[in-house]
Nucleic acid binder design. Structure first.
Length: 645
RNA sequence: GCCGUUGUAGCUCAGGGGUAGAGCACUUCCUUGGUAAGGAAGAGGCCAAGGGUUCAAAUCCCUUCAAUGGCUCCA
């Protein structure tokens, strides 16, 4: 028998007989390893550990700690769930059951059976019972005819539909215990690897993600090779819940929703409003330094504006319905762009005026579907850190680059280090429908955007068919501390609206010329950004941004007067401070200040009053000791300076 | 919008066909205490809204409203 060469990730090369399995390779290294491998990656393809390797290969043995190991583990768990479902609810039909980032789901059609989350325990028990049987996952290659025959017999129309789309000769079944499923694999060696099972929730999901199709029942679950890992995971979920911006927003009195105001319309409480003012102050200063001019626009506009801008056909469904006045329809503004274009058009422009940069914290209203609303992250009224830059083609690269630099500066200040820039391009097939029909302009602007990104050495990914209708864009995806991913900011090129609005400047040759437009919103909307920051900071806003920077804690009423004097000094230095003058013990006051996430606490007693000092405790417990009031003010200012630069 | 779950005091929640409960928060009093909860008393609710069943509904049923987990991550 001929030998093949197996190259392991560390670069070592070993010889094995042809047809060796990953399991056997692992065994040749150690028994312990062999017991723990879940799957194997052979020349980049993930397969079962028992699949024979027929040619020279790079081999990675996948364990639970590997991403693909987990995926295989959870995908196999989905099959186990299906087996348990079939045992308990005969006749159930199956859609798809993939692994996801954390766990797996299976879409099922229960037919006549009733199922609710109360039945989870029963189902979990059945899964564990089946897991204990250590049934092997057996791979079978079947012909399309056989596959169709099997599921016709079984009466599972969903699987039949899936098989229709598959190529004969590439179809495989996997069987474990009494359950057989159409599946590409790979899978665990046997069900015994699964030691802990938790079903998480129940949801409706449209067959093939299309809302015109029948809605199936989706069961989400997660499994682990050890019970202790499940416990740790559940604890982690609990912790994540405590960092949810909706919870923190209520707890810290940042924002509120009210039935009489309406869904998706947040009310900003004093502390939330203070954060907004601080963010705006910061943004306005930064923008002023970068040469932006501030403008203001009304909240409503006539229908004709949105027809001219071209927004109406694309966005009508996500705009609030119009109100009619004297036979004319008025819309609440859903975007600031057309207003800014009108401001540009209001006065004549020379090439000497360009670039023109208009900035506004514009309030917009968008009619998001009720099911899409989500805390502060998805709302119906929003205040956007918006600006539009009108420039010549020659200026474009420098302007676009400056905008990107602004993003990076902001990310540094807010400590955002986990983000992905998505360069969203058009789809040439959809020119004239989803996108403005100007192929050469698309190419030109997309090339410009790419070259800015490449030249600035910014890592990015390119995605097709996600551009705005008027031009390519860069979306910045960020991840909150509890793993939520969303688009925070956007930086867009617009070569279409200047034409629509007949915007021009007079160039050096005394001719009319169209400007290019950049749309940008680095700080997103107040709503989404503060929602993100709440989770990012776990409610502990940094000193510069905290609505309550300092709390004075007199040890007893005897030090009230000195405390008030202190408060006045701090206020004179623009430090946001308050006194806890309740008749409570110091320990209690510290606890409450900690729960309110106040960054600095001043403990005031006999000693401080006599020496004219303050004793400083930082949030979290660090003791900065005693210092003069002047020294404390200097400390606060230095900290803020440090945080903003 | 669709599927599942939930809605009781400011907050977190218990209860449950026979005129409503706890802890925290709040108010008052006692206490004047040095780094994460001192003590006592008090006040506070048409049990989301509307309709139905019943001698009787916060409780059971229906509708509505709202919140919440999903509905993209392709056998």
């Amino acid at each position: 028998m001929s030998e093949i060469q197996i190259t392991l990730p560390d670069g070592s090369v070993r010889n094995y007989p042809q047809g060796v399995t990953a399991h056997q390779v692992a065994q040749s290294i150690s028994e312990g390893l062999a017991r723990n491998i879940i799957a194997a990656k052979v020349n980049g393809v993930v397969v079962e550990t028992g699949r024979p390797i027929t040619e020279d290969a790079n081999l990675v043995l996948l364990k639970w700690d590997d991403k693909e190991g987990k995926q295989t583990f959870w995908h196999s768990s989905a099959h186990l769930l299906a087996e348990a479902l079939e045992a308990l609810y005969p006749g159930v039909k199956f859609g798809i059951g993939p692994a996801i980032d954390s766990g797996f789901y299976y879409d099922i059609d229960l037919g006549e059976h009733k199922f609710s989350s109360e039945d989870f325990a029963k189902l979990e028990a059945k899964m564990l019972e089946l897991a204990k049987q250590e049934n092997a996952y057996i791979r079978k290659e079947v012909s399309k005819a056989e596959a169709l025959e099997y599921f016709t017999q079984k009466g599972d129309e969903y699987k039949l539909e899936l098989i229709q789309d598959l190529t004969d000769g590439e179809i495989t079944f996997y069987e474990q215990g009494n359950f057989t499923d159409l599946c590409r694999g790979p899978h665990l060696p046997n069900t015994g690897f699964i030691k802990a099972v938790k079903l998480l929730n129940l949801a409706g999901a449209y067959w093939r993600g299309d809302e015109k199709n029948k809605q199936l029942t989706r069961i989400y679950g997660i499994t682990f090779p050890k019970k202790s890992e499940l416990d740790a995971h559940m604890l982690m979920l609990e912790e994540a819940k405590k960092r949810d911006h909706r919870l923190l927003g209520k707890e810290l009195e940042i924002f509120a929703f009210d039935d009489d105001i309406g869904p998706g319309l947040p009310l900003w409480l004093p502390k939330g409003a203070a954060i907004i003012e601080l963010l705006e102050g910061f943004a306005k200063k930064t923008e002023k330094d970068a040469g932006y001019m501030r403008v203001k626009s009304p909240h409503i506009a006539k229908e004709s504006l949105y027809i001219k801008s071209g927004h109406l056909p694309y966005y009508k469904d996500s705009m609030f319905p119009p109100m009619e006045l004297d036979g004319i329809n008025y819309y609440l503004k859903a975007m600031n762009c057309p207003h800014h274009h009108k401001i540009f058009a209001a006065t004549p422009k020379s090439y000497r005026d360009l670039p023109v940069r208009y900035a506004e914290y514009g309030t917009c209203y968008r009619y998001e579907q009720t099911g899409e609303l989500f805390g502060l992250m998805r709302v119906r009224s929003l205040q956007m850190n918006d600006a539009h830059i009108y420039c010549t083609k020659a200026q474009f690269e420098a302007e676009f680059k400056a905008v990107n630099a602004l993003y990076l500066k902001y990310f540094k200040v807010f400590g955002i280090d986990k983000y992905v820039m998505r360069f969203s391009k058009h789809d040439p097939k959809k020119l004239g429908q989803k996108y403005i029909n100007s192929p050469e302009l698309w190419k030109e602007t997309e090339d410009m955007v790419r070259s800015v990104l490449v030249n600035a050495n910014i890592p990015f990914i390119e995605v097709e068919d996600e551009a705005a209708f008027y031009g390519p864009k860069i979306d910045i995806q960020i991840y909150s501390a509890i793993g939520r991913e969303f688009t925070l900011a956007t930086n867009q090129v617009d070569f279409a609206q200047a034409e629509r609005f007949d915007l021009y400047f007079i160039n050096e040759k005394s001719e009319k010329e169209r400007p290019l437009i950049i749309h940008r919103a680095p700080l997103s909307t107040h709503e989404r950004f503060i929602g993100f920051l709440l989770e990012h900071y776990a409610g502990k806003f940094p000193l510069w941004l905290n609505p309550e920077q300092v709390i004075i804690l007199p040890i007893s009423e005897k030090y009230q007067e000195y405390s008030e004097k202190l408060l006045n000094v701090l206020k004179k230095h623009d430090i946001r401070a308050l006194i806890d003058d309740r008749s409570e013990k110091t320990g209690k006051k510290i606890r409450d200040a900690e729960l309110k996430r106040v960054p600095l606490m001043l403990i005031i007693g006999e000693k401080e009053q006599t020496d004219n000092t303050v004793t400083v405790r930082k949030q979290g417990g660090e003791d900065l000791g005693s210092m003069s009031v002047e020294a404390f003010v200097a400390y606060v200012n230095a900290e803020i300076e440090n945080q903003l630069n």
